[in-house]
Design a protein around this nucleic acid. Structure first.
Lengths: 337, 337
DNA sequence: CGCTTCACGCGAACCGGTTCGACAACCGGA
DNA sequence: TCCGGTTGTCGAACCGGTTCGCGTGAAGCG
């Protein structure tokens, strides 16, 4: 069942059916009604591939996300969900593309074979060849994250530097003098992940400003690693009274480590960081944290991409977000020890 | 840059280029080399829409997942990740389709417009019109979950009945006599979600078998609801000493409620349920639970779908999984009270 | 009444691939 | 030398839409 069949049954030509559907040329009410009736009767829908071939747009956007090998964090899930939902509102479908080790292959599929009109990139690195590559090609894309040279690019990012610094100031204001930083896994830091780098920067600078004694750690994205990391922290400096973390997935393990060391949160030890709000609330006591507005970021990314697709020659745009710290129950004044 | 351009530069016809690429007819080594050289030079890749139009296959599978309105659980994330990864291994892309309120619209896009060759459905209901609809159409699809009448269908499911029963027996063996069941939200139960129904069934029957006193609850998919639910449980029957849950997202809240009621896990109260292993380990004490093998299920679903696509006339297949309970630290003998 | 104007619909070309039938060149065997 | 079979290549048709240019009949106008 194709457009020719509809045309035949309605007693008109294929082009007339096409115009009746698209409205790009006037069609008399009579014929339009007749065509619509046949379409409803047969439940006809135009073939997406044929349409994409003819007018050069697939009405699909690609979402390039990290490989499953690493554990997913809740934040990534929220990104995916909100991107899909926002795209649906614009009548775009979302094609998932794992950007694994051989990111070239996946990229070739998306771009070279023209499967998508534009792309949204997650898990950005400070020096990101994917971003550079797309920029060179002039291919419409929006990054969720910000490279070291974001000027002139399209992105929506989180001000990790400021957020980590805010966490440090929060702890310093409470009187903490010896604190630790729990980062994402070392492998990601070495790969240049922007959140890991900027977060670390913000933490280090703010701590220096306040004259704090600090230690920084990398930690795997799971509970067991979090627990192990906390043991190292207390082993390296038992006088530590607080920590800042970017590592959502390790949070449960950090709490467990504290409980087993007999440190009560927040009486003996304060915990804070940058974490999606929904996850900050699952731990007890609930985490005082800068809540990552993942859903808002996903929506923004789609809005920007659609704008870029609709106005290819418009100026580049971006959003830099810096949500405030939500005070919950995991931080408190440093005890005189 | 298209196949005609390649043909021109290589001094051959378009069909020869096509055959050189597909290998469906012999091409002399000389011409093949010449063609390959031009292709490499120009970085040519065949247009996916054109190819899909010509041979009737998109090399894309649709993943129909629940709308973002409800919170996602970690399990769903694991499904998505493993499906994408498994599909990539077969050279399939994955198109995400939110099956929201107007699931018809999204379905029409996927099927009517022929965007995908097959589909994987998540969040199955006992009476699921999507499954029925696809079965009527003979459209290749695989369900992650099992309807009330799974005979002759393609699916990969979890034996929630058996798993919930196993949890009850585990608690009963430890001497618990009064236990509660914490289900998914009431809205989902009413909608007929299979895990909620079968889990409840398994719990109820096993409890009756063991002569236990039980209460069952529905609980929202977030920590606050979990905490509230636990308060209700202890209010309704303070002598309750254990619970079984399917609700991953509420788990943190349940623990918090217990802590605030002064019940120590596992000394005063035992907690168990059916939860993805990775999340069972984030809480303290770690949850004794039947670990949902989400990644394995996603892989199986893709395997089945690809088999169905390759052999449209083969007999239907399915996998019913029933992972054992992993003993961790959240259950213990009932205290004589 | 003859002329322009406009609304409407048609046919053909095109998007970029795949596939089928035909044909030329070459080979060995009778 | 002629014939039959291979091998390699080509042209044309096709997949199912969109879009451009043109023709036609009716309405508008002096």
């Amino acid at each position: 069942m194709n457009i020719g069949e509809i045309a035949r049954r309605a007693g008109v030509s294929r082009s007339t059916v096409s115009y009746a559907l698209s409205g790009k040329r006037p069609v008399s009410d009579d014929t339009r009604r007749k065509i619509q009736q046949v379409i409803d009767e047969l439940g006809y829908r135009p073939n997406a591939s044929a349409r994409a071939l003819a007018n050069g747009r697939t009405n699909t956007i690609g979402l390039v996300f990290p490989p499953a090998g690493n554990h997913y964090t809740g934040m990534q899930l929220d990104f995916i969900g909100s991107v899909v939902e926002a795209a649906a509102a614009y009548d775009y479908d979302v094609l998932l593309s794992p950007s694994g080790v051989d990111s070239d292959r996946s990229f070739q599929r998306l771009l070279g074979e023209r499967r998508v009109d534009g792309a949204i990139l997650m898990e950005i690195r400070l020096e990101d060849d994917r971003v550079d590559h797309l920029a060179e090609l002039g291919f419409p894309s929006v990054a969720i994250g910000r490279t070291a040279h974001p000027e002139g690019g399209w992105w929506v990012g989180l001000d990790h530097t400021a957020l980590a610094a805010a966490c440090v100031h929060h702890l310093a204001d409470l009187g903490h003098r010896r604190i630790a930083f729990v980062n994402r896994p070392e492998q990601l830091l070495r790969a240049g992940y922007e959140s890991a780098h900027r977060g670390l920067d913000g933490f280090t600078k703010a701590a220096a400003e306040r004259g704090l004694t600090v230690r920084t750690y990398c930690c795997g994205d799971d509970a067991a690693s979090g627990q192990a990391c906390l043991e190292r922290i207390l082993h390296d400096d038992p006088a530590t009274t607080g920590l800042v973390t970017l590592n959502e997935a390790a949070l449960g393990g950090l709490y467990r480590g504290l409980a087993q060391a007999g440190r009560h949160v927040p009486r003996d030890f304060s915990v804070t960081g940058v974490v999606a709000g929904r996850w900050a609330e699952t731990v007890t006591p609930q985490l005082t944290a800068a809540d990552v507005p993942a859903e808002e970021m996903g929506r923004h990314a789609v809005d920007l991409l659609v704008e870029r697709l609709d106005h290819p020659d418009g100026p580049s745009r971006h959003h830099l977000l810096a949500p405030p710290i939500s005070l919950r129950a995991s931080t408190g004044p440093a005890t005189a020890s």
